[in-house]
Amino acid sequence: MVEFSGRQARVYSIIEDDSEVTLFEQFIEENEAKFKDEIDDIISRLYQIGRNVGARHSYFKHNEGKPGDGVCALYDNPDRKLRLYCIRFGMDILILGGGGEKRVRAWQDDLILSKSAKKMIHYAQDIQKKIDSGDIEF
């Protein structure tokens, strides 16, 4: 995504077969009206990650997926309502997924978050396989 990618990190998202837009754009579309301030904050942080500071481990909440798969969520304070799932490959590569409103403590208990998290877990595994086989190179 050229809007975010810079000298510190390259930022990607995923376009599914049946869609015209990325998972991240879908996330924006679904939540912009209700949580404009939070969306602006997320956009600013992603911009800074790509351009100035990199996708540092501490900017994310980890262990959202399966051990070692890189699925994480952009750090959100308890008072914030939105959760955005990502796949992180070190400090240099970040793949944005979807997410939604945090209504419950664990994503497994929420239909929308659960769908987004599971999707990212699936894509993380798929990407890793394709990297290993040389089908994907960054």
């Binding site: 995504m1 602006d40 911009y47 800074q48």
Partner: peptide, 29 residues
């Protein structure tokens, strides 16, 4: 290979963020 992707939607949102707001985020990070 991942390809370059330009999003008008995100471009618009970024343009609405004021330099002050962006600086605050930058400084915190």
């Amino acid at each position: 290979k991942p390809r370059k992707y330009k999003s008008i939607q995100i471009g618009n949102l970024l343009s609405q963020i004021t330099p002050l707001q962006m600086d605050k985020t930058k400084n915190k990070m």
